[in-house]
Design a protein around this nucleic acid. Structure first.
Lengths: 123, 123
DNA sequence: TTGACATATTCCTATATAGGAATGTAATGT
DNA sequence: ACATTACATTCCTATATAGGAATATGTCAA
């Protein structure tokens, strides 16, 4: 009856811009919470809470060392997202081609001197 | 102070599973609302509300014809999502390779007869 | 106009945040 | 033991849903 929890899956977790920033930061190398705080300019509890969400959906992993906790992005967890989006890849290529062809036809029509395309309709 | 609006960007809009289903349905061909309702088994107001969100972030387009409205997925709007996720692609390849290599080393170690890898450390 | 059909919007409510403040917990140094 | 450092959690509040019910808007047909 309300929005699904942010921890319900990766799709919900990455809806928050800060969390995407954190993932981008932690993909390069692991970092302690302190460094994330300093790098992103958020306050510590906020970062901890975001990390908690990311951890719950498997988007980050922790390694404990003394009193520090090193977080790192678990890249594989982003894969389902990538694959879902990739499903649409061929369609935006199609749509871009259609726009392009339409523009070309229009240009040819407007110049009224060097007809390049015939007036082919696709799809 | 609360979660960002579902209409704030594509990332928030696609967090909802039903909306992803709708996008998947409407990428193949445009459909009137009725058909979406029948296909997904939701009730009509719910579908209309989801379509409103998707429309606000440019994920779908409408074509009006008489009293029907034909919706269709605007594939280009999914591209930013795809590109963000693609940023991590090389990392999950790396991580998978590391796991694979580790498994190979372990297998070689366990058989104790045909040493295949030397004990190379990467990264 | 009246009615039927197609779609959109409004009202309602339970739920889930995100951020800020304050506090809790665990590990280290002296 | 005690203070300090590094994180995590809890409490609070304004806000934003998603779904259901009811209603509104728009279009065509007779």
């Amino acid at each position: 009856m309300a929005r699904a929890a942010t921890t319900s899956d990766a799709f919900n977790a990455i809806a928050e811009p800060r969390r995407r920033e954190i993932l981008t930061l932690l993909i390069v190398r692991e970092r302690p919470v302190n460094e994330i705080v300093a790098e992103l300019g958020l306050d510590q509890p906020s970062v901890s809470k975001h990390l908690r969400v990311l951890r719950d959906v498997g988007l980050v992993r922790v390694r404990c060392d003394g009193r520090q906790k090193f977080y790192r992005t678990q890249a594989e967890a982003i894969r389902p997202l990538h694959e879902w989006a990739a499903t649409f890849e061929r369609y935006w290529s199609h749509q871009l081609n259609r726009v392009k062809e339409r523009a070309e036809r229009a240009a040819a029509q407007e110049s009224k001197s060097t007809p390049h395309t015939g007036g082919k309709d696709d799809d």
